[in-house]
Computed example of a mutant assay.
Amino acid sequence: MNRKIIIGISILILFTLGVTFSNSKSEKNAKKFQRVVNTLEESKEVLINDLTEFEWDSAYVFKAYTSKEKIFNTIGFKSQIIEETVSEGMNQLIFVKDKQVVCFLYGYPDNVGYGFNFEDTFSKVEDYIKLNYKDSPIFSTEKIDNIIYFTCLAL
């Protein structure tokens, strides 16, 4: 076989394995987050750091319909895990560590059991919010119809 073809196939296999590992790590962390959220009782204040059983540096929330290009430009890298939201009611929280998505929370609150409210936090200038682990962001929680809703109190 031609050496260039073998090298090309090897690179493709390594890339595929890397994407699969990254996706599975993100999915495992999303399940960990959901498991911790399911233990929450009635309304209280929580630190987002206490809900994440994985390491992260920054987390990003984007307004509905933000394009992937805008997301990639904001977080500083591309990721095949990230999806655009298709309506205002969807969750989209991207946890990042060392230029990798380590957890991607995405979906409708009815389907995943939790929802985030950042509408009052978005500024007129920016269409995203950046949370930093070191700042220990605070959220209030409210349980409505077995769904935990998080409202950002302090970044």
Rank of each mutant, 00 (worst) to 15 (best):
I148N: 00
L51A: 04
S58D: 15
G76N: 09
D120Q: 13
S79M: 11
S140K: 06
Y108I: 11
S123R: 06
L12R: 03
Q80D: 13
W56C: 00
S43V: 04
L51E: 02
I48T: 02
Y133D: 07
D120W: 07
T66I: 08
K99Q: 14
F77Q: 06
G8L: 12
C152F: 08
R35T: 15
Q100I: 02
Q34S: 15
E83H: 12
Y128M: 04
V102Q: 08
I6D: 11
I148W: 00
V19P: 04
I148G: 00
A59N: 08
Q92V: 01
E55P: 03
K143F: 00
I138T: 02
N117G: 05
K32S: 13
K70N: 14
I13D: 03
S67D: 12
T121L: 05
V37I: 07
N23F: 15
I9E: 14
T52A: 12
K99D: 15
I6N: 12
I7A: 13
T85H: 03
D145S: 07
I6M: 09
N91E: 08
K97I: 02
G18D: 10
L40I: 09
G107Y: 04
F21L: 14
D57L: 08
Y65L: 06
E84D: 10
I147S: 00
G115I: 03
T85A: 05
K28A: 13
I48R: 01
L153N: 10
K44G: 06
I71V: 13
E119M: 04
S24Y: 15
S136I: 03
L12Y: 09
G76P: 12
Y65N: 10
K31Y: 07
F122S: 05
F122W: 03
G107W: 04
Q80A: 12
R3K: 15
N2Q: 13
I48S: 01
I6K: 15
T121Q: 14
D50R: 05
E41V: 04
E126I: 08
E45G: 02
E119Y: 09
S79N: 11
A64E: 09
K31D: 09
K99T: 13
K25N: 15
K99W: 03
M1Y: 14
E53V: 09
K32H: 08
F139A: 00
I9L: 14
N146E: 08
G8V: 02
T74Q: 11
Y133S: 14
T141H: 00
E55F: 10
I147Y: 01
A59Q: 06
Q80K: 12
V36Y: 02
V36R: 06
T151P: 01
K97N: 12
I144S: 02
C103S: 10
F15M: 11
K32M: 11
K25L: 15
L14Q: 04
I138R: 05
T20F: 11
N38V: 00
V61H: 08
K31T: 06
I144N: 05
N73H: 13
R35K: 15
E55Y: 12
K44C: 03
E69P: 01
T16M: 07
G113T: 04
K4Q: 14
V86P: 01
V36I: 11
S136G: 05
V125N: 13
V125C: 02
Y128A: 03
L40Q: 01
